[in-house]
Amino acid sequence: MVNNHNAVHAEKPGQEDLRDMIARYLPPERVPKKVKVITDTSDFFRVDYDDVVVLDGRPYLIRNYEREGRFSIDEQPKFWVKRAIDLEDGSLKIIKMVFSERFRAKVGDMIFECVRSSKKEARILDLVRGHPNFMHGFSTRDSTGNIIRIIDYIPGITMDILISRLGRNHEDYFYNYFPSVFVDYIELVEAIAFLHRHGEKHGDIRRDHIIKDKRGGRYRWIDFDFNYWHKENMFGYDLFGLGNVLVYLAGRGDVTTQYLGHNNQAALQRLTIDDMNIIFNNRVVNLKKIYPYIPDTLNFVLLHFSAGAEVFYDDTGQLLDDLNEARDNLNVAHDSVREE
C-alpha cells in the first residue's frame, strides 16, 4: 500500500537545514550553495544531481541516475531512477519516479503487451517486506500524487557478472562452484513461487535483475515494475525467464552456436534444432551435449526450455520439484560462494 502521508502536508526543510544535513555526508566544497528542493517529480528530467527531493517531509539528496542494459553495452539511462542519500540517516536509496509506459515487447518473434507500472512495484514492495530474496523499500506519493518508490540500495553485483568470474573453465566452475550457485538459484525460484502464490508476477526475470547482496551474500530479485498481458498461463513468461537464468548458470554463460562455431565445431555438429532454446534459436539448452558431466536430472530440467520439449512447466511448483531432485543428484554441499 502506498504511504499516504503526503509531502504537501509535511513541513519542507529550509535551505540552512538542508545544507547542514548535506554537509554531514559530503565534503564542504561539494555542498551546493543553493539547494533546489523538489516535491513534484512529474517531470523527472528536471530532477538533477545535487537537488533535494522531499517526500513525506524527508529529504533525499539526488545523485546519479541509474542505467540498465546487458553485457555492459547499449546501457540505457533510466532518468526516472536516481540514486539518492537519505539526508536523515545517510543511507543510500534508489528513488524510482513515475514513468508509465505501455509498449509491445518482442521476445524472439513473439509479441507481448507490456506495461511499466509504479502501482505494481509498490504493491510488491509491500508484499515482499522482510523477504530476504527481494529488494526492499516502500512507496509514497509526491506533492502531486505520483507514486514514488524508495528502495534500499543493495551493494553488490549482478548474478550474470558474478557467474562469469567463477572457475578457471566450465568444468572447474561446474564441480566447484555450480552446486552452491544451484542451491541459491532454487532459493530464487522459491521467492518467485512466493510472488505467484500471491497472484503477482515478477514480470521481467533476467539474470541481471538478480543482485548478490554483499551483506550476507543472499541473491535478491530487483525491478518488478513490469507487467505483461498474460493469456492462459499467467506465469508462463516468468517461467521462461527462470529457465533462461538456469541455462545461463548451468552453462557458465550463454552457450551459443556462434561461440561453438569458433571454439567447439565438434559439439556444434552434434546439435539439432531440438537442443536449442525454444525462443532463442542460437542458444544451446541441451548442455549435456556440450558438457557430458552435467547430470541427467539437471539436463532433464534444462530440456523443458528447449525447442524439442513436449511438456512444459505450468508453475513454479513443478519446476521446484525437478530442481530439488537435480540438487540431490549434484550431491555437493552448499558452501563458500556466499561468503566471497
Binding site: 521476445v107 524472439g108 513473439m110 498474460h230 493469456k231 492462459e232 498461463n233 508462463g236 513468461y237 521462461f240 525454444i278 525462443i279 525447442a307 520439449a309 512444459f312 505450468d314
Partner: peptide, 14 residues
C-alpha cells in the same frame, strides 16, 4: 505454435 503454448499457454489444452 509450441513456443506460444510455452509462453502464453493453451486454454483448450488446459
Amino acid at each position: 505454435s509450441k513456443k506460444e503454448e510455452f509462453i502464453f499457454g493453451s486454454t483448450s489444452n488446459k
